[in-house]
Design a binder for these strands. Structure first.
Lengths: 360, 360
DNA sequence: CTGAAAGCGCTAACAA
DNA sequence: TTGTTAGCGCTTTCAG
């Protein structure tokens, strides 16, 4: 009874040299299940059974069908299948900007997981524009995706209301949306920041600055809170500089931070900003980590290549992607109700930019 | 007569608060065109006309339909539409690895262009595995994409034969496939390399090494040829080190290159390799560009952030993506036969890593 | 074990 | 100007 729940055959490896696509009234058409049926002298239903690995078809008939399929170079139409079954083999990925070095690895995790589970993946970039976000979500719903992985800037209440009435499941990465009943996979940004600061202070640093990310992005806010609490608990005076998540932001903030606070250490909201800050510090003749120790966050691939190699909080980005798809698949298969938040472990990575020596 | 060739209305901005999805026999279902028709007291055809901006519908009826659509939170099913029209609003992108810093910008160009033209975009990573490449192509064909942008490792003859019998148009980026009649958008890798080497030699360099990319990748081969010819034309003795396109490759090749050739300049097959080479040179105590000048290729974003800032050959990656989609769209709309190759302009970018001073 | 037939949600002749 | 009616390519009862 379960045969058609199996993954349909992929004929990819079988097709050698499609003799020719069918010629109908002079039109060059992709062959359909009908042509296969005719050529194999069976009904569409039987071809369908073969396609779906229904074991009830007699061996010789199956052979005939397979032969016809091969000869025609036939490929079943996924959308027709989706329409007929009202299931979907597509999922969507909506993210801010694949060009931001944090996202490619995430996307890769999502894509790998999606393909492993037999889903095709749509992708869209929003540049953190809530309006575009909504638009793409709806576009994907129109495409009949089975679910959506959403890496979202904060959508407002109204938008969220709009979304909760969707039938299409949504899983969030990295950021929660207030009041939205969506599964999410996250890391504990607060604790990560807290630990980074605690480490720095354990190294003897007293003047530890923070470059914060955008205020409307939750993870940035959580990191800031973590920083502030850690500073307070250590009895240190905090200094927060506001900025964005970009390299240039680090570059530009650095001057003011140095002049106003004279830090010996810096915890940046993400690696890109940290890298920019380091660059600017060096331009001003400061040595990293000797004059100023720097810790970033995210562990983007580039951090290892730059010099000094960037100390950072490593986030299991790839795994976040994989987990998100797993949650999604579960939901799509009718998984239990109740919002689930999966929190993955971060890890402080100690590289050159934060020094190794005791200070004081 | 052309009205239904216009882009269908997107109801995104109209939907405010979908009252509720339809309740049918206790099942929670997405509303269909049928329910809209019933609620608006018209036929499906009329709803369809409204959806497709057919101007023949009377104003008041149109209003009624729009109202029903809004109240139900109705979204037309793109796949049903695709099936009915045997057109497709999806295209596919197949690339080696989004994680490689060269590709995100390309992907972004493709995605932006795709969305601008109203296409949804599928994405797949192949890791340069020809088998996976073929598999994904076929998967996308099954999804009924209207066309595919392919960034391909070289597929063998047999595979290409397989592909030419596809009805789905394919546009290549960066690499041609021998004997395949596909449109492509490229840059002139040969000339780019030639010019880079000529520049280096014009700076007085005599010992200019080259780190080549994978042999099976055409652009890498062309760059190598460009290097070799430039060296020959300048009367210099070439030195080629074989490697891959990865950072580590540059790192690892550098020792041998230095010891065997003692270059004063290096032209690397791409930026990642150049960056690795620089890193390793610095570890050995060499200064860049003073002891060894380096030029890469691709102009990945990171080249500007590293120090010394990387000199490189800038490739209009984003534009390549946009152009590829334009070619594809043209083909999909039945564009004229004949394979077209569009060659975009590269540009030598002179940053810190190749020095500015005359040498001798 | 196989075939006939009724959909899936939508479009597009063709009538009215 | 609108409705009726076939499909699009596939799946899935239900008979046989």
């Amino acid at each position: 009874m379960l045969y058609w729940h199996q993954k349909p055959i992929s004929f990819f490896s079988m097709i050698q040299k499609p003799v020719s696509a069918t010629e109908i009234e002079g039109e060059f058409m992709k062959p359909t299940i009908m042509q296969v049926a005719e050529r194999a002298q069976v009904s569409k239903a039987t071809v369908s059974r073969v396609l779906n690995r229904n074991p009830q078809v007699k061996e010789d008939i199956k052979e005939r069908v397979l032969k016809a399929i091969e000869e025609l170079g036939y490929r079943p139409s996924a959308i027709a299948r989706n329409l007929a079954t009202s299931r979907s083999n597509m999922i969507g990925l909506i993210l801010p900007d694949i060009t931001n070095p944090y996202f490619p690895v995430l996307a890769r995790g999502i894509e790998d997981a999606a393909h492993r589970l037999g889903y095709a993946l749509f992708i869209s970039n929003t540049d953190n524009d809530p309006k575009l976000e909504l638009e793409y979500i709806h576009k994907m719903v129109e495409q009949q995706v089975g679910g959506i992985v959403l890496i979202s800037a904060s959508l407002d209440e109204e938008a969220v209301h709009d979304l909760t009435s969707l039938k299409t499941p949504i899983v969030l990465c990295d950021r929660l949306i207030d009041g939205a009943p969506f599964d999410a996979v996250l890391i504990d940004d607060y604790r990560a920041a807290y630990e980074a600061v605690r480490f720095l202070s354990s190294q003897g640093h007293v003047r530890i600055a923070h470059m914060a990310g955008p205020k409307n992005i939750q993870s940035a806010e959580n990191r800031k809170r973590g920083y502030l609490d850690a500073m307070r608990d250590a009895g240190l005076e905090p200094f927060v500089s506001a900025g964005s998540f970009h390299y240039e932001s680090g570059l530009h903030q650095m001057d003011a931070v140095i002049e106003e606070y004279r830090p010996t250490a810096l915890f940046a909201a993400n690696d890109l900003v940290a890298l920019g800050a380091i660059q600017q510090a060096q331009r001003r003749g400061l040595r990293v980590p000797d004059d100023i120790a720097v810790i970033g966050c995210d562990d983007i691939p580039f951090g290892q290549m730059s010099s000094p190699a960037l100390s950072t909080i490593s986030i299991p980005v790839y795994q976040i992607g994989v987990t998100a798809v797993q949650l999604l698949e579960d939901r799509m298969k009718g998984g239990k109700p109740g919002t689930r938040n999966v929190i993955l472990e971060h890890r402080l990575i100690h590289r050159e930019s934060c020094g190794g020596v005791e200070r004081k």
